[in-house]
């Protein structure tokens, strides 16, 4: 009996994604019981929004996992600039979409390499480095803002962003596939093991022959590429680009990572948790919308939820398992 209780508490500590799952289910139950306005189709909407949040959140998760306070604050600017790039470069044809895709990937690679260079070569703390690079990207967006015209949306992009396969949004399928991919990479690949090692102790990882700089750089590059792709998909979803497009992804990417049970101190991460964390966060927003709260109050509440989770989790998630 005591042993059972112990193994349950161990499971709750080890499988930290249980908490966002519980939170999500509770909110779902409450919403379904209290309001007729919340239906299965609204749930699809929640899943769709969460799917767009997932890619940047996965990127944020990787960067956070390298530890030492690493974080990617350039995500919103990368998302927005990629959306602009998509609108500006699109000609409406499938071949043109190939060009767009290459440009968007190049943006991600460059932005990620730039961040990695600032952090690893110039040894600027990630928080400041990515804040600065985000500012540069935002300024670049401003300079092309005037040139934006009509958006000849490529059909393939339209399908990716808004299409459905037997009722399930393609974006949701992309999100699930990405989650599984990163779960395997984190849990089962040599790269994932090295990432956890670096996040736990740079010295110990280095001594074991892990190329610390390569692992750390790869997370910044992946984060920027994922954000860049998100910007492209968002442009397809919203049929255009606007300046504040990426802004919500700053707080929400961190929120999804934290709510999902990834250690903010680094060294341990869960892709599945990040998916559930994003889902819970979007669910909270939806609940507030259903409750009729104004957008400002929604942002305030989101912030409060993240602070609350971090403070409650101080002993459970924030610190290492003891």
């Amino acid at each position: 009996m005591a042993e059972q209780r112990q193994s349950l508490s161990v499971a709750l500590r080890e499988k930290r994604w249980i908490w966002p799952l519980l939170g999500f289910l509770v909110l779902w139950a409450i919403l379904t019981a209290l309001t007729a306005r919340f239906s299965l189709s609204s749930l699809t909407g929640v899943a769709q929004s969460a799917a767009f949040l997932l890619l940047p959140a996965l990127g944020q998760m990787l960067v956070v996992t390298t530890g030492r306070g690493n974080i990617d604050l350039s995500i919103p600017s990368t998302v927005t600039l990629a959306a602009y790039l998509t609108v500006l470069s699109s000609s409406g044809s499938e071949a043109g979409f190939g060009v767009t895709l290459v440009l968007v990937l190049a943006l991600g690679l460059l932005a990620g390499a730039f961040n990695a260079g600032l952090v690893l070569l110039l040894r600027i703390p990630a928080m400041i480095a990515t804040l600065a690079s985000g500012y540069i990207l935002a300024t670049a967006t401003l300079s092309v803002n005037a040139r934006i015209g009509s958006f000849a949306k490529p059909p393939l992009l339209a399908w990716l962003a808004t299409g459905r396969v037997s009722g399930v949004p393609v974006m949701v399928i992309i999100a699930v596939v990405a989650t599984v991919l990163f779960a395997v990479l984190l849990g089962r690949s040599a790269w994932g093991r090295k990432l956890f090692a670096v996040g736990q102790s740079v010295e110990a990882a280095r001594l074991a022959g892990v190329r610390v700089w390569a692992v750390t750089a790869s997370t910044f590059v992946l984060s920027a590429v994922l954000s860049s792709l998100t910007g492209m998909l968002l442009a397809g979803y919203a049929s255009g680009a606007f300046l504040e497009m990426g802004t919500p992804y700053l707080l929400q990417s961190v929120g999804a990572v934290v709510l999902g049970g990834t250690l903010i101190a680094g060294g341990s991460a869960t892709a599945f948790g990040t998916l559930l964390g994003g889902l819970l966060l979007v669910m909270i927003v939806t609940t507030m919308q259903v409750a009729g709260l104004p957008p400002g109050a929604q942002d305030i509440l989101q912030g409060i939820v993240i602070i609350a989770v971090l403070s409650v989790a101080g002993g459970r998630m924030g610190r290492r398992l003891s």
């Binding site: 090692a197 102790s201 001594l207």
Partner: peptide, 29 residues
């Protein structure tokens, strides 16, 4: 501080310096 990854298990520490030898194709462990 340097010899071990204290939060890793014995198994994870055992192979950290020789991951290639326990990884299959695509680097899957």
């Amino acid at each position: 501080g340097e010899g071990l990854l204290m939060d890793f298990t014995i198994a994870e520490n055992t192979v950290i310096a020789s991951l290639d030898s326990v990884a299959g194709p695509l680097g899957i462990l």
